[in-house]
Computed example of a mutant assay.
Amino acid sequence: MSTPLSAAAFRAALRAEGVTVAEHGTWSTHNRDSVGSWGPVQGVMLHHTAGTDSVNLCRTGRPGLPGPLCVAVLAKDGTVHLVGYGRTNHAGLGSRAVYDAVRTGGTPPARPGADAVDGNTHFYGFEIENLGNGRDPYPAAQLEAAEKVAAALCRAHGWAADRVIAHKEWTTRKIDPSFPMAVMRTRIAARLGTRPTTTYQPFPGAAWFRRNPTSPIVTAMGKRLVAVGCSAYTDGPGPRWTESDRRSYAKWQHKLGYTGTAADGWPGATSWAALKVPYTKEVRRTRGGADG
């Protein structure tokens, strides 16, 4: 069970995965939360739009189905257009058996059962611009964007690739998206087996910071915190993790939109990726850590 990422953390996770993002209007607060709950989130659902002018359609909706119709639209050129965030009208009711399989890491049934669970509550929804007629192609850049956005959310939540499903796997009412999901999940799993290609420092792990390390990574992090206007330092930053580092990092978490215990100053994977700490070879990494 997972609490949805904040809008800022969601955007940061996409960018950390190498996604090209375009933001539209007040996307971060444009949602359907007033008519139902958003979360706990259990996975990612992929769709195709079955139309053109997809960004505008997915932002505003259509008669009888108000927008937003997803959190983002994946254009043919691979650009990911952020159009809403929170509960969106993308999934509708779907199979309890599929929901339970996604939630527990089991194998979904070959054919969905009766519609019983509100997918708008439990899934991040992405629309991929395509007519869905079997003739409209999915360019390589667009499929790569689908792979990246799904992997970004799986990485942020600590999910495996089997948390990513198609609308057609959710309910017998739908046929989208019109590409093989087994192939897409294989691509996502392969991406999750590696870290994004980057010149930035990989996340050392939550436990690493709790040991009060002395490392040039701490210095590099502190310099980045100063650069983004989140300094609580009276001197430094230096290589030894101190209370000043923790208070500075808490400022960064607040800037990303985190609150409460998620903004306690102890680094987490998503906020770390968004900080873009320059790479240094010196670190022995341990895995783990929720965000913050």
Rank of each mutant, 00 (worst) to 15 (best):
A227P: 00
R185Y: 12
D100W: 01
G193L: 06
A101C: 05
G222P: 11
C154T: 09
P112M: 05
L14R: 05
D136H: 07
A151W: 06
G64Q: 08
K76R: 15
A91F: 00
L57A: 15
T88M: 02
Q253R: 07
G92W: 00
P216E: 07
G25D: 11
D118Q: 06
A290T: 14
V102L: 04
L74D: 07
G238A: 12
P177Y: 13
A140P: 02
F10I: 01
G94C: 01
V226D: 08
V44F: 08
P239W: 01
R59Y: 10
K276M: 10
A250C: 03
A116L: 08
E129F: 05
V226E: 13
S244V: 00
Q201M: 15
P204I: 03
E17Q: 15
G257W: 04
K276I: 00
K76P: 02
G260A: 02
N31E: 10
T197W: 06
A9R: 14
W27R: 04
E17S: 06
F123E: 00
T270V: 15
V41C: 01
K168T: 14
N120G: 08
G260V: 03
D235M: 05
R195K: 14
M45Y: 06
A8I: 01
K168Y: 15
I128V: 15
M181N: 11
Y249Q: 07
D77H: 03
P112K: 05
G36P: 12
T219I: 01
Y279N: 10
G265V: 07
F203H: 04
D100C: 00
R32D: 10
L46C: 03
R185K: 13
R240C: 01
A161T: 13
R240L: 11
S271M: 01
R191T: 10
E144I: 00
T261N: 12
G43N: 09
T172I: 14
T259V: 13
V83N: 08
G36L: 11
H157Y: 15
A101Q: 07
H90I: 00
V71W: 10
G289A: 04
K148D: 09
V55W: 12
G193N: 14
T219Y: 12
K148E: 07
D264L: 08
T259G: 03
T20Y: 04
V226R: 14
Y233R: 06
T52K: 14
G193H: 08
K174D: 15
W27P: 12
